[in-house]
């Protein structure tokens, strides 16, 4: 924990209970009430996974750090828009940070830049799952047919448009779009079965 002089705003409410015991959802709700200690804990919980995602998408540590900063500023300012009944805090954060990364890629002209098939071949999620939730997602993704899964992995981890992906993979845009649709519907159904 950093010193009090580094707190985000001067109106920080005191938190009587140990926040490390709170769920990410509870922490995010406290952040919405401008609790900077909850923000610190939430940062500790989410930052490594989100930073990993930013580095994958942006392929540039400096830009990834900038987007991570933008994302957490957004979390601080817009945490009140989070609806716990709709999704988990982590899922909400991923949506926010991915959107920020895609906006940055667009601003840098990287969205439509050509990529070669070789570089996409190495783009894949790790096989070993780190938590029960990631285990469920990993198992659901494994049920998606290989070719459709590859499209989803490349799209998620690289943030490319379907035109660029079609070109890189040497297939028609129609085939790419149809594969993404099939894969995502399949993944949705598998996640539902897995209880997420």
């Amino acid at each position: 924990m950093e010193s009090a002089s580094h707190s985000c705003v001067s109106t920080t409410p005191k938190t009587p209970m140990a926040q490390t015991e709170l769920s990410e959802e509870e922490l995010l709700q406290r952040v919405a009430r401008k609790d900077s200690r909850a923000f610190d804990h939430l940062y500790e919980a989410l930052a490594p996974r989100l930073f990993g995602m930013m580095r994958q998408m942006l392929n540039d540590d400096r830009v990834a750090e900038e987007v991570l900063t933008e994302g957490f500023v957004h979390v601080w300012e817009q945490a009140s828009s989070y609806d716990e009944s709709r999704c988990k805090a982590f899922v909400w954060a991923v949506t926010v940070f991915r959107q920020k990364a895609i906006e940055r890629m667009r601003a840098l002209g990287r969205r439509n830049r050509r990529v070669d098939a070789q570089s996409l071949e190495q783009v894949t999620f790790p096989a070993d799952a780190a938590s029960p939730d990631s285990e469920t997602v990993s198992a659901a993704l494994a049920t998606v047919p290989k070719e459709d899964r590859r499209l989803i992995e490349c799209a998620f981890l690289k943030g490319l448009t379907h035109h660029v992906m079609s070109e890189a993979l040497g297939q028609t845009p129609e085939a790419t779009k149809a594969g993404v649709r099939r894969g995502m519907m399949h993944l949705r159904d598998s996640l539902k079965k897995g209880g997420l």
């Binding site: 995602m53 982590f90 991923v94 991915r98 999620f125 997602v137 989803i152 995502m184």
Partner: peptide, 9 residues
Amino acid sequence: VAAELGRLV
């Protein structure tokens, strides 16, 4: 659904 994939990063 797409955001859930973030768990695998």
